[in-house]
């Protein structure tokens, strides 16, 4: 297989030795089928053992290896070096997040937000397991299925300028996951989730730049989720004005 050499300009940040990130360049010989992650692994294994980044499944489903590749948020296991060659590739930590080290970002805030949208089935009344599954038609499944494809890779947050300006914004992935449960025919938790989704740090922060949906590697379309929650919330608000006695 043909081997060529490509330059990777990788952001380094080692909190014990530098106050601001720097860039380190590596020349990497690569076969045609290498992705950016392969190049990083090559650096780690053969050149510089101190480079830190997260990765695991190398097949685009665990969501660990999100990075900025030439300024775009990407799963580094899913972008090929050959598509950038012969130009150098800039590899940076995901935008809009605090950086722990090198390419490793702090995503603990997301885990708090995820919990806040109550991403679990909320029932008025549980059915005993002995009575079997809740029936759900393929059409009912279809209503929420693509919002359930989120791998929590954080690319959408890296693409969202609103989150960049206000880190308190609940953000695309968490709202989409909350909405996924609202849409699930087995769930009765929409009203409970409204407290967080309809909060000023929730849907109304979103100005609909739309980039979250563009960069999403799983086509979850969080932008659509957020706008639809806006419509639903507004509809319910109007209904509550018109019919204050109506309980929802």
């Amino acid at each position: 297989m043909s081997e060529r050499t490509i330059t990777l300009d990788v952001t380094r940040y080692r909190p014990h030795q530098e106050a601001v990130p720097t860039v380190q360049s590596y020349a990497i010989p690569f076969p045609d089928d290498w992705v950016v992650l392969d190049a990083l692994n090559h650096i780690k294994d053969q050149v510089d053992g101190s480079l830190s980044y997260r990765w695991s499944c190398r097949m685009g489903v665990c969501g660990s290896c999100g990075m900025m590749v030439n300024g775009e948020p990407k799963l580094s296991c899913a972008v090929f070096l050959r598509d950038y060659f012969p130009r150098a590739i800039r590899v940076e930590p995901l935008s809009n997040f605090p950086v722990i080290r090198d390419l490793v970002i702090d995503m603990s805030g997301f885990l708090d937000k995820l919990k806040s949208v109550k991403p679990w089935i909320i029932r008025e009344q549980e059915k005993p397991l002995s009575e079997g599954e809740y029936l759900q038609s393929p059409r009912e499944l279809d209503a929420y299925q693509h919002f359930s494809q989120c791998i929590n890779c954080m690319l959408c947050y890296a693409a969202c300028p609103v989150f960049g300006l206000d880190s308190g914004f609940v953000g695309p992935a968490a709202i989409a996951l909350g909405y996924r449960y609202n849409l699930d025919s087995r769930d009765h938790g929409t009203a409970e989730r409204r407290e967080v989704l309809g909060d000023h740090e929730g849907i109304w922060q979103c100005t609909f730049v739309g980039e979250c949906s563009v960069v999403c590697p799983k086509h979850v379309d969080p932008a659509a989720a957020i706008q639809r929650v806006k419509v639903d919330t507004a509809k319910d608000w109007i209904l509550s004005l018109v019919m204050p006695w109506g309980q929802r």
């Binding site: 909190p15 014990h16 601001v20 935008s95 605090p98 950086v99 722990i100 603990s108």
Partner: peptide, 10 residues
């Protein structure tokens, strides 16, 4: 959680 003191905030 990460130590906030060591974080770099872009």
């Amino acid at each position: 959680r990460p130590d906030p003191a060591g974080l770099y905030h872009p």
